[in-house]
Design a protein around this nucleic acid. Structure first.
Lengths: 205, 205
DNA sequence: CGAAAAATCATGCTTTTATAGGATTGATCT
DNA sequence: AGATCAATCCTATAAAAGCATGATTTTTCG
């Protein structure tokens, strides 16, 4: 019996590419595709799937969150993260959320088939090479941010100052400053410039 | 005679996807693919091509620069930018460099064929919708930066302070500050956070 | 319920940025 | 030769951010 695959990606080109690459492969069958998280969950409710390829960047929710949802609701489905980026941080978050592997989109056919085989056999697969790409300033993982911290981060990125953020959130400037300091600590940086660069690189803003 | 197409993208999935989408289309023929700028130029030297699809993000040089090179060396070849992003700034830069169109990778088959038809007929095509996506803080175009400004920008993004940058570049702190202020003016922002966010979004750092 | 985590606020001090308003020296282009 | 622009430097002030230390109050969750 062949491995049943669901592909979730909002880029038709990637969907087509993967389908086409897997079409003539043996023992593999693409049983469905989805371009957003809601459709993906709906599909899983009504169909049996062995491996779900999940894009990291989806229109509705992040692939990281979708991965968690899938593993919660359909623990038997194995998940494989698909990403444009070669980011250590993404990987650990996905694995943390139950993913069985991580494929960068620049992977070739062999890598993809190898990944499927590995994952189906109960193993893990990832074809990232970090050390060239990851700058020294990058944190080991995507730090866990609280709701408030995310809000403050976004407002900082929009160019607001502490007083302006305080006004926006109806809290005092010292509170905003606290969140801000926590962000610096969590990202292991010492100023706003590095913070925003990292956050931007991680798609957080 | 069919339209001869070269696809330049470092993601095999995108290459496959486009090839597969264009395979059964009439009047269109993918005559070559390349995964970097050097191969692309080499291919153009030895082959006749009507339209080149250029990824914005390539391993060696940016698609924006490649576009300029292609138009300089092969003015008869029409170029179509391929991008993940919906960025006003990219578009104007590509058009400035002679591109005939701009396609986001989330485009469907119809859009792609429409783009080819338009471009082949000597027209322009772009399927971006800016206003929802582009934040108010975005500049109209990618500002022109001098050599020194680029250097300073990168060092700011790396988290260095003015005194540290001054030391690194063997100039005074006031000079660094001047460049920094010029960066703020050119990007039309008022603080470092916005500056880095924009620069990151434009792939400048 | 009770512990842990998050969100809130405060004070004080230092460093860095932002803003304003110049000025001088080279290099480049017309 | 004159104009333009980049790069360099300066003074001075106000605003914002960074750093330390600590405390109180909600939420959240087992």
């Amino acid at each position: 019996m062949s491995v049943r695959i669901l592909i979730v990606d909002d880029h038709p080109l990637v969907l087509e590419g993967l389908k086409s690459l897997l079409a003539d492969a043996e023992g593999v069958r693409v049983v469905g595709t989805a371009t957003n998280a809601i459709d993906a969950i709906a599909f899983l409710k009504n169909n049996e799937v062995d491996i779900a390829f999940l894009d990291i960047n989806l229109p509705d929710i992040s692939g990281i969150d979708l991965c968690k949802k899938v593993k919660d609701q359909f623990p038997e489905v194995k998940t494989l993260a698909l990403s444009t980026f070669n980011e250590r941080a993404y990987v650990s978050r996905m694995i943390q959320n139950g993913a069985s592997g991580y494929l960068i989109k620049s992977s070739g056919k062999e890598d993809i088939l190898e990944a499927i085989a590995q994952v189906q056999a109960g193993g893990y697969f990832m074809n990232v090479q970090f050390d060239q790409v990851t700058p020294a300033t990058a944190p080991k993982t995507v730090p866990f941010l609280t709701r408030r911290e995310k809000e403050v981060l976004v407002l900082i990125a929009e160019g607001l100052t502490n007083p302006q953020i305080a006004e926006q959130l109806f809290v005092s400037v010292t509170t905003v400053n606290s969140h801000r300091q926590n962000l610096l600590i969590k990202f292991e940086v010492s100023n706003t410039a590095s913070l925003i660069k990292l956050a931007a690189g991680l798609g957080l803003i």
